[in-house]
């Protein structure tokens, strides 16, 4: 979902081509689209700004002002007296590091070859087609996270096994909710609630199993640790807006996870 506003100031005709043969709006569109895609798949705000700056410069822009935060990119690009202003409102997005690498390659290629809009969209389509994370890889990855971190938090082999098995329905839930319009906070509460219930059932079946240790492995699937570290990185780096946004999002996520498990324990703690 994005909204774009295009303002062309001064008397030049819309879509006037530059010496490269590419219309100016198309050049800015390419830069903004790539910036948006990088932000959506987990790229840093500074990388988004740098990418837009480099691409616009390659297409002949004489002055570029670009600002990005987690959910917004604003750019003002000047081409010999003509100014193109664009904004993009960004919601959603899933961290995909493979896609991020490919988009980074595409950015370098654009600066070298200056493709037109159609060619750029074709390349973007190719990246989309080859960058999907399979359900199997997603589930196995989550099982490894639960296994590893259950051991880190002091779990024995049985607790690690249970934690790993609970990661499977959690992965299915995460995939399901990412494809719906459900509020991400609500989705996290629901997933953690059911994971908590499963951990409590395991604790009832085998009293030697510590429910807290099992849960500690499974929470690592959802905890916003990277977001928390990035928020401090942004704050200390002077990117205050982005840092505050990330910090708020990380704290809200952690509260949602804690609430999901707490509700499961409150309702079923003494019953299951």
């Amino acid at each position: 979902m994005n909204e774009e506003n295009l303002i062309i100031s001064d008397s030049h005709s819309d879509g006037e081509a530059m010496p490269t043969g590419i219309p100016r709006e198309d050049a800015v569109f390419i830069a903004m689209e790539l910036g948006e895609q990088i932000l959506r798949c987990g790229g840093e705000v500074s990388r988004v700004e740098d990418t837009i700056r480099r691409i616009c410069t390659a297409y002949g822009a004489t002055d570029i002002d670009v600002t990005a935060i987690m959910s917004l990119i604003v750019s003002t690009v000047e081409f010999d007296g003509e100014t193109v202003v664009r904004t993009r409102w960004i919601t959603g997005g899933v961290t995909n590091l493979g896609r991020l690498s490919r988009l980074n390659d595409l950015s370098r290629r654009i600066c070298r070859t200056l493709p037109d809009k159609a060619e750029f969209l074709g390349r973007l389509y190719d990246i989309d087609a080859t960058s999907n994370i399979s359900s199997l890889a997603f589930t196995v990855g989550n099982m490894l996270i639960a296994l590893g971190f259950c051991v880190v938090w002091g779990g024995d082999w049985l607790e690690a096994l249970i934690s790993t098995l609970i990661a499977v329905p959690m992965s299915i839930g995460m995939r399901y909710f990412s494809g719906t319009k459900t509020n991400p906070i609500v989705a996290k509460v629901i997933i953690c609630f059911f994971a908590g219930v499963l951990a409590l059932i395991a604790g009832k079946i085998s009293p030697s199993v510590s429910v807290g240790t099992v849960i500690s492995g499974d929470i690592m699937l959802l905890v916003p640790g990277v977001m928390l570290a990035n928020s401090f990185r942004d704050l200390l780096g002077g990117d205050l807006m982005s840092g505050i946004f990330r910090l708020c999002a990380a704290i809200l996520d952690a509260v949602a996870i804690a609430c999901g498990y707490a509700v499961a324990i409150l309702i079923f703690g003494g019953v299951v």
């Binding site: 987990g42 961290t95 995909n96 590091l97 493979g98 896609r99 690498s101 490919r102 960058s131 999907n132 994370i133 890889a137 997603f138 196995v140 990855g141 989550n142 099982m143 490894l144 996270i145 639960a146 296994l147 590893g148 971190f149 051991v151 880190v152 690592m220």
Partner: peptide, 17 residues
């Protein structure tokens, strides 16, 4: 080893090349 296994899982979940 446990931390590395967890991180390998994260790399898979995030679709690393």
């Amino acid at each position: 080893i446990a931390m590395t296994v967890g991180s390998a899982g994260t790399a898979m979940v995030f679709g690393i090349e």
